[in-house]
């Protein structure tokens, strides 16, 4: 027990680097890909998406607008043009169907920053943490909307590191990028998953949208779980795993339905027993031990429970 287990090592040993990092690589490519759709114009003169994450125009036709930013504009007293309303409705509709927090893990440019901080924390063995609940971000979301209403401004956009990062890279580097550094330092030294998991009002907003998420992770192979705890170590919202993974005891289905789950798929990668997989929210199937090639020698004992 004295040797600290490094999550991912066993998965890599058992299944190889690619399988043990498949969804992580896919996610990094998606994050880079979304950014390059925006950056191809200003950097290479190939205009695919104009604007930034707050509002954009794709191929001169499709308008997209960040629904939370538009919500702030609405409570600040502005009556937006139809373009912005339509753009926000499209974004909101897509995330309601697929899952709001997909934005957090597959699109948001801050995700690689906080993932890097979380990785560094694990490697450097930094244990500091603050006693604050994940629900605190809902209060931050309320505070942002209250501030917008009180001042008649889109208040969070003054400090939002997400849009600041995109804007800095697309429209020229900005001192505002300091907010990105602050997020990194917060996650590294002050709190585990401090920004994305406790503070960010954008994540809180998409967490609410995430209640109808169609795309979900299922612990369909939970019978094989040998409690190595690797998934908890890498999960940015670790409280979402247990209800589904340990659902045998409570009669809960294997699908992770907790709205905080960002559907990042890191648990799928990291699990040496291949317990998790992507599916839709209504898929309550459990793996049959025989049909599973990656099954460990003694899963039957657990299956009986």
């Amino acid at each position: 027990m004295s040797v600290k287990r490094i999550p991912g090592v066993e998965a890599r040993r058992k299944h190889g680097f690619l399988t043990a990092n498949r969804w992580l690589i896919a996610r990094r490519l998606a994050q880079l890909g979304f950014f390059m759709l925006f950056a191809a114009g200003p950097w290479f003169g190939v205009w695919i998406v104009k604007g930034t994450l707050s509002s954009s125009l794709t191929l001169e036709t499709l308008p997209l607008t960040d629904p939370l930013i538009l919500l702030q504009a609405l409570v600040a007293g502005h009556k937006p043009e139809l373009t912005a309303l339509l753009g926000a409705a499209i974004v909101l509709g897509a995330y309601l169907v697929l899952g709001g927090r997909l934005y957090c893990s597959w699109v948001c440019p801050i995700n690689p920053v906080t993932d890097l901080a979380a990785w560094a924390r694990r490697r450097l063995g930094i244990e500091t943490d603050w006693k604050i609940r994940p629900q605190a971000r809902l209060w931050v979301l309320g505070a942002v909307l209250a501030a917008s209403a009180a001042t008649g401004t889109i208040a969070f956009e003054l400090i939002n590191p997400i849009t600041t990062l995109y804007r800095g890279l697309l429209f020229g580097a900005s001192w505002g990028l300091a907010s990105v550094l602050l997020v990194f330092l917060l996650d590294l030294f002050v709190a585990r998953h401090g920004w994305c998991g406790h503070v960010c009002p954008v994540g809180a907003f998409y967490g609410i949208v995430n209640r109808t998420a169609g795309l979900r992770v299922s612990a369909s192979g939970r019978a094989r779980c040998d409690d190595c705890m690797d998934c908890y170590a890498v999960c940015p919202e670790m409280h979402v795993i247990a209800p589904a993974l340990k659902g045998d005891r409570t009669g809960t289905g294997p699908v992770i339905l907790a709205p905080d789950c960002t559907t990042c798929g890191r648990c799928i990668d990291i699990c040496p027993e291949r317990v998790f997989r992507f599916t839709h929210r209504f898929d309550q199937r459990l793996d049959t031990p025989a049909a599973e090639p990656g099954a460990t020698p003694q899963p039957a004992t657990r299956e009986a429970a």
Partner: peptide
Amino acid sequence: QSACVRCGLCVRD
């Protein structure tokens, strides 16, 4: 201040 979402589309055009 209540209306501009800072998207930069005016700058681009």
